[in-house]
């Protein structure tokens, strides 16, 4: 998510091109899409009878109901959170700094790594934390595309739901408490990153 979202966010923030609005709408679609629909979409594309099934078969890959499917579902749903944050963080970087680095002889890759990413790091960190938190809570897309195989593809929220159905409340409350603690810690970390880093990086 971070590996792909960071350069894409940078690209989106520093370039104007035809169809940018369409592209960014496509990237952001999972934000507003009901997660169940997102899972259905993934299943339609990568499922056993999906659009890419013959290509996947040729590669010997089977995705649905595997741990890889969990990761795909989470990335699909949480990625846009990170991408939006990354794009906003890069947009806030003074374009003159990027231009200055270029005039000094740095190629686009060095400008990205040495100037843009460090200056956007607070926003990127916050975006990663929020995206991760969103992935943690992922339910709909995961259960549609990855199912709920205990110990394989069962995520914590799904386990909670199924435990609740069974009436296994000890288990459910325990897991819930762990998720609350993790979520609070992530949120706190995101805030600390944003507050601790921003003043130091503020130009002026």
């Amino acid at each position: 998510m971070v590996l792909v979202g960071t350069p894409v966010g940078y690209w989106m923030a520093t370039h104007e091109f035809r169809g940018k609005a369409v592209l960014s709408t496509m990237f952001e679609l999972p934000l507003v899409l009901p997660p169940a629909v997102a899972g259905l979409g993934l299943f339609a594309a990568f499922g056993r009878t999906g659009m890419l099934s013959s290509e996947l078969d040729a590669l010997g890959l089977q995705l649905p109901f595997t741990p890889a499917a969990v990761v795909m579902a989470m990335t699909f749903v949480a990625g846009p959170f990170y991408l939006r944050q990354a794009e906003a963080a890069f947009s806030a970087v003074d374009r003159d700094l990027l231009a200055a680095a270029r005039t000094l002889g740095a190629g686009p890759a060095k400008v990205f790594l040495r100037v843009a990413v460090p200056l956007a790091s607070a926003g990127l960190g916050a975006g990663a934390a929020l995206g991760w938190a969103r992935a943690l809570g992922e339910f709909g897309a995961t259960i549609m595309f990855a199912g709920s195989l205990q110990g394989v593809t069962q995520t914590a929220p799904i386990a909670i739901y199924l435990g609740f159905e069974r009436g296994d409340f000890d288990h459910v409350y325990g897991l819930g408490a762990v998720l609350i603690a993790i979520s609070a810690a992530v949120l706190l970390a995101a805030k600390l990153i944003a507050r601790g880093r921003l003043p130091r990086f503020a130009p002026g």
Binding site: D94, D96, A100, T103, L104, L119, P203
Partner: peptide
């Protein structure tokens, strides 16, 4: 280009 450019507000890397 090999042209040293002094930006109006200097554009120093703050980090």
């Amino acid at each position: 280009r090999g042209v040293g450019l002094l930006f109006q507000d200097y554009a120093l890397f703050p980090h």
